[in-house]
Design a protein around this nucleic acid. Structure first.
Length: 297
DNA sequence: ACTACTCCCTGCCAGC
DNA sequence: TGCTGGCAGGGAGTAG
């Protein structure tokens, strides 16, 4: 579950379990994530309190009382599940919903945080494209994973002028530009398709064409920023999207997948009122793009 | 300095 | 039924 709305949903789900709690024990069952977890990974967490739980783009940032920051990325298939030990029955039996969830997930449970709050936070990631890394807090700005990220799309600083500036001179499609985390942080394949649909802009349009010669924004840049912000806000409010039955930290499903207008809707009628066209699927830079060729120019 | 392509890994599904 | 190829929400590394 990996684009900005899903990561934000995860952040909110982890907060009650992790904020102000200490890492009592960190269990590393599989070090072979995107990059191997270093030998001192657990040691740098154990005994530390969580001072804050933030997000930058698709990265989760866990502030630690040591001054370090735990950086986590869900990759393509990563998810977290939170089990509250305090939810056990008085005789120690675990609730049925936890039991069933654990049965399903245990195959790819790679890292388990046992928190002093009694919460157990499980990181599960079948494809192991996910990332965990502990860095010194004062180096966070220098951390290459974070430093290269473009603006947060929901911050005020992200506006048509900012987007036009970075798109100026780009010899690539809008689709590819918006997937580039240096242009804007947090969009992935779904929300780029959805934002372009809302902005009525073709994914094939050259990125440079939303900016004037000096990089000033045009009306298209305004529409695109509006589309990006609107779709992200709606998706966060819906608890993100759940594809292929991926669950949130509480085991519930996000709901936004039901509100996709073009993503994974190849062949369906374009949802624009009065449009008689159908949603098309094309491949750009090796990834599927869904759009309406009639509405999106 | 750009852009595009390959690769990392597992699971699932349509089609044969 | 079982195999195969293609595809999946990401992005680092590399070749051009």
């Amino acid at each position: 579950m990996p684009e900005l709305p899903e990561v934000e949903t995860v952040r909110r789900g982890l907060a009650p379990a992790m904020e102000d709690a200490r890492f009592a024990k960190v269990e590393v069952r599989c070090r072979a994530l995107r990059w191997p977890l270093p030998g001192d990974f657990a040691r740098r967490l154990e005994g530390r309190a969580v001072t804050g739980l933030g997000r930058r783009g698709k990265y989760l940032l866990v502030g630690l009382s040591s001054g370090d920051v735990l950086i986590m990325h869900l990759g393509m298939s990563g998810s977290f599940y939170v089990f509250h030990k305090t939810g056990c029955h008085s005789d120690g039996r675990v609730p049925a919903n936890y039991y069933h969830e654990r049965q399903r997930r245990t195959a790819h449970d790679h890292v388990i945080f046992h928190m002093s709050s009694g919460a157990v936070v499980i990181f599960n990631d079948p494809r192991r494209f996910g990332t965990m890394k502990v860095v010194a807090g004062n180096d966070l700005e220098a951390e290459p994973l974070i430093a290269a990220l473009g603006p947060e799309p929901l911050d005020d600083a992200f506006d048509a002028a900012a987007l036009a500036r970075v798109c100026r001179g780009r010899k690539t499609s809008l689709k590819a530009a918006l997937l580039d985390q240096r242009v804007v942080a947090g969009l992935g394949n779904i929300y780029v398709c959805e934002a372009l649909y809302r902005a009525r802009l073709s994914p094939k349009r050259m990125a440079a064409t939303i900016a004037g010669k000096t990089g000033e924004p045009d009306e298209r840049a305004e529409r695109l920023v509006g589309g990006i912000r609107a779709v992200l806000k709606e998706a966060i409010a819906a608890g993100g999207s759940s594809l292929r039955n991926h669950k949130r930290t509480d085991g519930e499903l996000g709901m936004f997948q039901h509100r996709f207008r073009v993503y994974d809707r190849e062949g369906e009628r374009c949802p624009t009122a009065g449009c008689r066209s159908t949603v098309k699927r094309i491949v750009q830079n090796g990834r599927s793009t869904f759009y309406c060729p009639a509405c999106q120019k």
